[in-house]
Amino acid sequence: MTSSIAPNSTFSQLEVHAGATPLGLELPTVVRFYQQMMLIRLLEERLLDLFSQGLLFGTTHTSIGQEANAVGVVNALDRDRDIVWSNHRCHGHFIAYSGEVEGLIAEIMGRITGVCGGRGGSQHLCFRNFHSNGIQGGTTPVAVGTALARKEEGAVAVAFLGDGTMGEGAVYESLNLASVFGAPVVFVIEDNEIAQTTPKALTVSGSIVARAEPFGIRTFAYDGNDPVEIFELAREAVGYARAESRPCWLYLRTERIGPHSKGDDTRPALRLEQARARDPIPPMRRRVANFEAIDAFCRSVVDRAVESAAAAPLARG
C-alpha cells in the first residue's frame, strides 16, 4: 500500500497544511500516520535529550519503536466521544489522541501550562477523554466503568496494557467485569516482550493472545509494526465493541527500541538489534514521498513547544 502527498506539493504548502493541526487530520492516511509517528518519535527523543542535559527532573517512559500502535489504535477512535486509558508509557497514545505537544512537554517540565498544570507529569495525563496513570493494571477496571458510563452514547473505551501488566490481578477482574456487564472496552495489549528489564519468558505463563477468550471476549491479534494494518484491525475491534456493546482483546506484538525509562536497558546487543530491525519508521519513509518535509515540520513543532514550555512559569502550587 502506498500513499503520499501529491508529488508537486511544495514544502510551504505542506507547512501551512500540516501546521494548522499537528495531527494532520486532513492529510491522506499514510502521510497522516507518518506525521503523527514522527511527532511522537521526535518528541520522545527530545525528552531523553533534555534529561541527559539535566533539564528534566523525575522520570519518563518513552515508547520509541511502539509508535505504530499508538497511531493505528487511536486513529480508529472517535476522538469526540471515545475514551482512552493509558499507562506509564503514555506519551505516544496521548499525542496520537490530542496533538498537544506543548501541553505534554510543559507538563513534563513542571510548568503551569502543562495539560495537568504540572501536577501529573509524564505518566499522569488528562486531556478531554484521555487519561493515564502510573499504576500497572490499575486503570483497567476504571476503563470498564468509563465504558459503561458512556455506552448509551455509543462510546468505546480503550485500555492500553503491556505484557508486563499480565501479572496484575486487576486485569483479570476487569476482563470478567467487562464481559459480565457488557462494557464496550478494547483492551489493547502492546507486547514488547520485556517488563522494565525482565524478559517476558521469566514473567508471563501461557499465551497472552489466548488470555481473554475464556472470559467470552473476542480476540484480535496482530504481529507486525505497520500503522495502517494496525489501524484496520483496531477499526474492526472498535467497531465490534461499539456495535455489540462487548469488550474485546486486541493483541499487538511490538518492540520497544529505547530503554524502559532513561538509561536502564540491559538487553543483549543482539536482542536490541532485533528490536531495531522492527522500527516502524523506516518502512513508512519508503511510502511517504517527502518525509523530510514532515520531519522538519514535526521538529519545528517540538522545538517551539520546548521553547515555549521553558519560558512558562514553574508550577509551585
Binding site: P141, T146, A147, E173, S174
Partner: peptide, 17 residues
Amino acid sequence: PISEGGIVGMAAGLALK
C-alpha cells in the same frame, strides 16, 4: 462478581464519566 478492587475501580470510572 466478588471483585472488591474491580468494582471500586469500575465505580471510579462510572463516576468520572
